[in-house]
Simulated assay, not measured.
Amino acid sequence: MIVVGGGVAGLTTAVLLAESGRRVRVWAREPAERTTSAVAGGLWWPYRIEPEALVGAWALESLTVYEELARRPQETGVRLVDGVQAGIRLDGLGDWAGRVPGLREVPDGLAARLPVIDMPVYLAWLRERLAKAGGVVEAREVTDLASVPARVVVNCTGIGARSLVPDPEVRPVRGQLVVVENPGITTWFGCVDHSSASTYFIPQPYGLLLGGTAQEDDWSLEPEPATAAAIVARCAEIRPEIAGARVLTHRVGLRPARSAVRLERQPLPDGRVLVHNYGHGGAGITVAWGCAREAAGLAFPAA
C-alpha cells in the first residue's frame, strides 16, 4: 500500500499501518522538513478544525500518545510544558476539554500542562520509527491519485488535496511565525481566535517561537517584515523581555483548512481503495494519532 503525503498526517498513518504488519511506502513530493508540519508551532490544542464533535476524540487519543512520548523528550522531541490559553473558559469548549488532565480555569483563561513538540526532531523520529517497522519513504510527486499503483492508497496530502483530489473546499490559512532567542521564558502562552492575527509564544529547544497569523486564502510563503514586527510587538505586550530578543529566523506555513476533516473510504472502479485523511486546519499535530488510527481502520476494516 502507498500513503501519499509525508507530513505529520502521512507519517503517522504510515507508522500505524506498518506496525500492524502492512507493507507501506510513503510517496512524498517534499521531505518532511519542508512540509507545513515542520514549521508548525507544535503545541497540542484543537485550533481551526471541524467538526468539533469528532475532533475531541481524535485530539484526546493523540494527547495520550504524546504524554507517553514526552517521557523520552530527547528522542522524540515531545515535552510537557505549562502554559495558559487566555480569554477562554471551559464552558466555551467542547466536552473534550473536561477530559484533558489538569486543564483548569485561572483568572486569565485556562491553564494546563500540555505537549509541546519540536517538529523537526519529531518528524525525524517518526521517519525512523517507520523505517524500523519496515516502511519506506520515497520522493515521488503524484498528479493523479487513481493512478497510484497500490491496492490501497491513503491520501494525506494536506493543502495539496485542493488540486490533487481535486477538492476546492481545501483552502490555505497562512501562518507566519518568528523565532527569537529565548530570553528565559519557560511557559507557553496562547490568545488565539478566528481573526487574521493572534498572539502566542512557545518555548522550543531552538528558541522562542512567536506567532502568529491566520490569513485565509493567502498562498504566500514569503515572510512579511511588517507582519513579523507586529507579531513581536504583540508578544512583547505579554512578556516585555521579548522585545529585545534577537530574531533567529522567520517561518511561514499554509494550514489546510476545510469545513470538516475528510476521513473517508472511497472505492475505486477497479476494486482498489482510496482513503482520504486531510483537511486538518490548524490542528494536524493535535489530531494526528486519532485520525491516523481511523484512517488505518478505513483502509483495512476489521472483519
Rank of each mutant, 00 (worst) to 15 (best):
D118W: 04
G175E: 07
V106K: 01
P73L: 09
E105I: 00
A146Y: 03
N182F: 02
G282P: 10
Y66L: 13
W125P: 11
D144I: 15
E216I: 01
R34L: 14
I185Q: 00
F201H: 12
A243E: 14
V24T: 03
V3T: 03
V65S: 03
V247D: 12
A260T: 02
P149Y: 08
P166I: 13
E19P: 03
D108F: 13
A112C: 15
G21S: 01
Y66E: 00
G134P: 05
A28Q: 06
F300M: 10
D82S: 13
S163I: 09
R140P: 04
L208R: 09
S196F: 07
S198A: 12
L16F: 12
E141I: 00
P73R: 10
Y47S: 04
E19Q: 14
G134A: 10
A161N: 02
W96Q: 04
Q85E: 07
V26D: 08
E141N: 07
L16H: 15
D193R: 11
A86V: 14
R239H: 12
P168M: 00
V121S: 14
R22K: 05
V287D: 09
I49L: 15
T76I: 04
I117G: 08
S220I: 06
I2N: 11
A295P: 07
G158Y: 09
L63I: 07
P101S: 02
A302Y: 05
Q85T: 12
G83L: 01
Q74K: 11
C235M: 10
I117N: 09
V26F: 11
E237Q: 13
E222N: 05
G212I: 08
P256C: 00
D95V: 08
V106A: 06
V178K: 06
R72Y: 03
P172G: 05
G271E: 02
G284R: 06
A124P: 10
G77N: 07
E222Q: 10
I2P: 04
E224I: 04
Q85M: 10
G135H: 04
V287K: 09
R29T: 12
R71Q: 13
A236F: 08
L103M: 15
P51E: 15
R140I: 15
V192F: 13
T76A: 12
G212S: 08
A257V: 00
I117V: 15
V261H: 06
V287G: 12
R171V: 14
V232E: 05
C156W: 08
V165I: 09
P183I: 09
P115Q: 10
R265D: 15
V180F: 11
D118E: 15
L145K: 05
C291A: 14
G190Y: 04
V3R: 06
V65W: 11
V136D: 15
G297K: 15
S198P: 01
A86Q: 04
L254M: 06
S259M: 03
A59W: 14
Q85G: 05
I49K: 09
P240C: 02
R255F: 11
A53P: 00
Q176D: 11
E105V: 00
L209E: 08
L248M: 02
L90V: 12
R234W: 03
G253D: 15
R29D: 08
